[in-house]
Simulated scan of single mutants.
Amino acid sequence: MTASALPVPRLHIVTGKGGTGKTSVAAAMALALAGTGRRVLLVEVEGRQGIAPLFDAPSLGYEERHLAAGLDGGEVFGQSVDADEALLDYLTMFYRLGSAGKVLQKFGAIDFATTIAPGLRDILLTGKLKEAVSRTESGRMAYDAVVLDAPPTGRVVKFLNVTVESGRLAKTGPIGKHSRSVARMLHSSLTSVHVVTTPAAMPVQETVDAHRELMAADLPVGHLVLNKVAGAKTVEVDAEEIAAGLARAGLPADETLGSALVAGLMEEYAAARTEIEAVGAYRDRLEQLGQPVAELPLLPEGVDLSGLYQLARVLRPGIVGGLRNV
């Protein structure tokens, strides 16, 4: 696929409140995007090492490594981006330091630099993303898409917008030029920021807040992903129906026990109905934000590689179908 025919967006940033399953969603999204003949890079930052266990693979390092086959025959690669290694790349790329950079790392100079300038760490991480998105090999793009398991919603805007501030401060030189170039990509149609939530009050409210902050920062919002949704639907049931059903089944014969069982089942039914109706209310609130909403099922046994493929198949129509050719 040539660069002129590549679909956009090509950088998918997945964020969400802790516990919403954003890492699983990012992994499933990478599988969904890796259609026939496509290569997708799945990236994590800040040393979290949350991706490898999902693929039953060894811990990821700075070197890109094949993780799994995507849907319909594509390939998914994984990488854990470390700020120190990214700085070595940066020094080699812009200052041609080569082995001298390794010497700086050995004596702690790189760690010192990223400690006294905390924003530099995020600049290096986002800069590495841009390099992966724009890299070419043998006349074609190295990756058709890059998916980032990003910091949580409380920090994602600062993480993505640090390059804007850096570009304003450094008016000239490689750092300023590099920062402005990364900022342009993050604020363009090449990028899409997806926010993951679950059907509960706090995660949905944090998603609403994150959406507002992303829009205010002029960062392109993609899908709102409502994750871990139970698949049941509301069905009208009353105590008489339950009692009749129990009688047909031959249980229980004792009237007192039967009444207690019916009452208990009615309580369970009322609680389940309330939960299901709440999901609908949360979905409506997300849809009011004007972004497409993708809904993923709750996997009671947890998410393993098989579960990732299941989630990917659900995600594919919305995520991949929403890509357009340019």
Rank of each mutant, 00 (worst) to 15 (best):
V76K: 03
Y90H: 13
T15I: 02
D284V: 01
L41I: 00
T163G: 01
V182E: 08
E44S: 10
D149C: 02
V195G: 07
E301V: 09
L251Y: 10
V146R: 03
L67C: 05
Y62V: 13
R248V: 02
Y269M: 06
R248K: 15
T92P: 05
A271K: 13
V279Y: 09
D209H: 10
V76R: 04
K158R: 14
A294H: 09
I319Y: 04
A253F: 08
P203H: 06
Y282D: 06
V8A: 13
A183P: 04
A100G: 15
I242C: 00
G176H: 05
A272D: 13
G250R: 05
D144G: 04
A270K: 14
G37K: 06
I123N: 13
V314Y: 11
E63W: 04
R273M: 03
H187L: 05
V81R: 04
S259V: 12
L104K: 08
T15E: 02
P152G: 03
V81Y: 02
S134A: 07
G78R: 04
P220N: 04
V157T: 08
Y62H: 15
L129C: 09
D254V: 07
V81C: 08
R135N: 07
T163A: 08
R65D: 07
L148D: 05
P174S: 11
E46L: 11
T114F: 12
T115M: 09
A216W: 05
G119S: 08
R38I: 02
T198C: 03
H187R: 14
L323N: 03
